[in-house]
């Protein structure tokens, strides 16, 4: 017997580790370092100053952007959770044939694999001033003039988020629901609980980690977003991501980096709350 045997796991995990090291850890460290640098119109000046943070944390614009972003995150979260839970509940408990279940599940998943930008653009002919919704409402005499806030508004932004990200709620919640022992549901009904009581006192607690995983995805995707907000608000609204994006396009990298660090810390705080509800490894 050899006294030393090499664990092949190290070799197998090397590509993953290299990607994480080179394209996750190094870039994040770079951002943290550069966020303390100075800059002028032409170049970055290595330094150790707190000006970027001071400007960021005392500016009204930042505060407004954070409030806006929290508003988007919270409303998207509430809607995707309700909608996603309902869809998952229907698929898990109302569809008996497992073939039909798979087909319907795939139908819900397919749009996730198509282009987000195209999916946002596709709202334009529906919501625009002369769009389908306005024409229909005018035709029916329900309104006298086209509704202006359908497109290029907070409404459009949240609608697009819901459209893009509800799937991130459906999948983990559906996954949790499929593991619930069906006898528990029957026991609850037999014990005299109504359907709603069963949902809230049996199903929801047992789906807690599915709900938490879905929430993690939705919250982080919305918090870091800039493209949905700029496209769907028509450039009228600024989220945290949009501010960072603007600084990037002005080549103010240290300012953008400071913004990114503060965003990162904010997201990590939100996640640390959500992660209390789950054990990821048990979920797989």
């Amino acid at each position: 017997m050899r006294s030393f045997s090499f664990n092949p796991s190290y070799l197998q995990v090397t590509p993953l580790a290299l990607v994480i090291l080179l394209f996750l850890l190094f870039p994040v460290i770079t951002i943290i370092i550069v966020s303390f640098w100075d800059y002028d119109a032409f170049q970055l000046l290595p330094d150790f100053i707190f000006d970027n943070y001071q400007f960021l944390l005392t500016s009204d614009v930042t505060l407004k952007a954070y409030l806006k972003t929290f508003f988007y995150a919270l409303s998207t979260w509430a809607i995707t959770l309700t909608l996603g839970f309902t869809i998952a509940y229907y698929l898990a408990f109302y569809i008996r044939s497992s073939l039909l279940q798979s087909i319907l599940f795939i139908l819900c998943t397919v749009p996730f694999l198509t282009s987000n930008i195209i999916r946002m653009i596709s709202w334009i002919p529906l919501l625009g001033r002369n769009g389908l919704v306005n024409s229909a409402l005018l035709e029916l005499n329900l309104i006298d003039a086209p509704i202006e806030w359908l497109l290029y508004s907070d409404f459009a932004v949240v609608l697009a988020f819901v459209h893009l990200y509800t799937l991130f709620m459906v999948v983990p919640i559906f996954n949790s629901m499929m593991r619930i022992d069906r006898n528990l549901i029957e026991a609850s009904i037999d014990a005299g609980a109504s359907t709603l009581q069963t949902i809230f006192q049996v199903v929801v607690p047992l789906c807690k980690s599915g709900i938490a995983i879905g929430s993690i995805f939705v919250v982080t995707l919305v918090m870091g977003d800039f493209i949905t907000v700029s496209l769907m608000s028509g450039g009228l609204s600024a989220s945290v991501g949009v501010l960072i994006r603007n600084e990037i396009s002005l080549l103010q990298y240290p300012a953008a980096a400071a913004g990114a660090v503060v965003l990162l810390i904010t997201v990590l705080i939100m996640l640390s709350i959500l992660f209390r509800f789950i054990n990821i490894k048990k979920e797989l």
């Binding site: 870039p27 951002i31 960072i244 994006r245 953008a256």
Partner: peptide, 21 residues
Amino acid sequence: YLALVSLILPSILISLGIGIM
């Protein structure tokens, strides 16, 4: 855990970080 972080880190951070790097 780093892989999980990678999954949920806002993508603009990755983009900015790799760009500056």
